[in-house]
């Protein structure tokens, strides 16, 4: 038990890079907890960070849907590989 308890913090489905069209202001980082928010030169915004599980990923995608942001790509990354 103690083993899994200690590791829940670092347990996740890996790192994800979510790219959407349009530059998103830093204030929206609140909605995507734990993800870094980078504005790329091509007019897209990239969210990058650890995603706990599939439910958390879908929650994030749903938020993007609700903001009417066109989704460009969702890529699973190996841990620590920065976009």
């Amino acid at each position: 038990m103690s083993e899994t308890q200690g590791s829940t913090e670092s347990r996740h489905d890996g790192f994800y890079e979510i790219r959407m069209k349009g530059h998103l202001d830093a204030r929206w980082a609140y909605w995507f907890e734990g993800m870094s928010l980078t504005r790329a030169r091509d007019g897209t915004t990239v969210l990058y960070g650890p995603v706990t599980d599939q439910a958390a990923l879908h929650g994030m995608l749903r938020k993007i849907r609700d903001l009417g942001l066109p989704l460009v790509s969702v890529i699973q990354k190996k841990k620590g590989t920065n976009p």
Binding site: G22, H23, L24, D25, W28, R39, G43, T45, L67, G68, L69
Partner: peptide
């Protein structure tokens, strides 16, 4: 000329 999210 701006790339920002329209709503923002």
């Amino acid at each position: 000329g701006d790339n920002r999210y329209i709503v923002d």
